[in-house]
């Protein structure tokens, strides 16, 4: 009793076991809701999938029609003594059932490409990861140092940040045609879109994180004889690095959201183009499967990075435990 009450104490960390259980629940619950909506006929199911058109001229087997309409047509047929249409409750095509998605997921990896130059799903995925990886690396090579400089020295901040603030509102996809004109039609313009989408946010986020460094640490370092460069490299950089690392994990997630526009630029390729194409033909089981693949990749990279972070920054690991 008191234990459960403690669960709702603000900012109190739970014991490891309930933490694990709740973490699993966070996946099980949505899955459960999805399953209920998909498999329990009286929950939602606003449509009827026609199995037997009966005497209704415009019904076809496999067509999904609204429940009211189906009922009305059935009543009409009954009145006329004509064969009645048959059907089962159904959801709109936009919401495939879990098993359909699972099947699509499985097929996506096992179905052999039909054409010589068609790609396996994992090859498309590799294309996407290539684009994300280089887009993020290039953005970071510029954004990290610039963000740290802006957060440390007012000169850089005034020189760069007003423009960056302006530029970050410009929609990255609008630069697609320009990127293609300059960088060609293959991966380079896609990488450029990821860079444009990530870089400007990155500069601002990193510079803000840098500004959050306790100024007393800089003062202490100065009274210990640290000057200019050693202040930057021995105090600012190590002082912010764990927070910057966290920022980078979040920014990497943002980079993924730009992938879907990046892959519509130049030649069509990659996992999100697959999503776009399948959605166009309303194959939502494939769409969901691909969305899930991205989710799995995203979550596992983040977990990997979190684990790696605890290795790299030992003082942070102990901090988390303390």
């Amino acid at each position: 009793m008191t234990q459960t009450l403690q669960w709702f104490a603000p900012r109190r960390q739970l014991a490891p076991r309930p933490r694990l259980v709740l973490g699993i629940m966070s996946f099980v619950l949505p899955l459960l809701i999805w399953s209920l909506v998909s498999y329990v006929p009286w929950i939602w199911h606003p449509l009827v999938e026609v199995t037997e058109p009966g005497s209704v001229s415009y019904f076809k087997a496999g067509q999904r029609v609204e429940r009211e309409l189906f009922a009305a047509e059935t009543a009409k047929a009954l009145e006329a003594g004509a064969p009645q249409p048959q059907g089962t409750p159904a959801n709109p095509v936009y919401l495939p059932a879990p098993h359909e998605v699972l099947q699509a997921f499985y097929l996506a990896f096992t179905a052999e490409p039909e054409r010589r130059n068609e790609k396996w799903l994992h090859e498309s995925l590799a294309d996407s990861i290539y684009v994300i990886f280089w887009g993020f690396v290039i953005s970071s090579i510029i954004g990290l140092p610039l963000g740290i400089l802006c957060g440390t020295y007012d000169v850089f901040s005034r020189l760069a940040e007003p423009f960056v603030e302006f530029f970050r509102y410009l929609p990255a996809p609008a630069f697609g045609a320009l990127a293609v004109a300059i960088l060609g039609i293959y991966q380079a313009p896609k990488i450029a879109i990821i860079v444009i989408g990530t870089l400007f946010q990155q500069i601002l986020v990193i510079s803000n994180t840098t500004r959050k460094l306790d100024p007393a640490l800089l003062e202490a370092a100065q009274t210990l004889g640290a000057r200019r460069l050693s202040l930057l490299f021995r105090v600012v950089v190590p002082g912010i690095i764990t927070d910057v690392y966290k920022d980078m994990r979040i920014l990497l997630g943002w980079a993924w959201t730009y992938l879907i526009v990046a892959e519509l630029i130049g030649t069509s390729s990659g996992i999100t183009w697959f999503i776009t194409q399948q959605a166009r033909y309303k194959n939502f089981d494939n769409v969901f499967a691909a969305i899930m693949i991205i989710g799995i990749i995203g979550l596992s990279t983040d977990l990997l990075l979190a684990w790696l972070g605890r290795r790299i920054f030992p003082w942070q690991r102990a901090e988390a435990r303390a």
């Binding site: 045609a177 004109a181 630029i265 030649t267 069509s268």
Partner: peptide
């Protein structure tokens, strides 16, 4: 080269 329709015209316009 397989494109999205609009993107293919962009690429053509860009001389690619």
């Amino acid at each position: 080269e397989w494109f999205d329709y609009v993107a293919s015209m962009d690429a053509f316009a860009a001389g690619q």
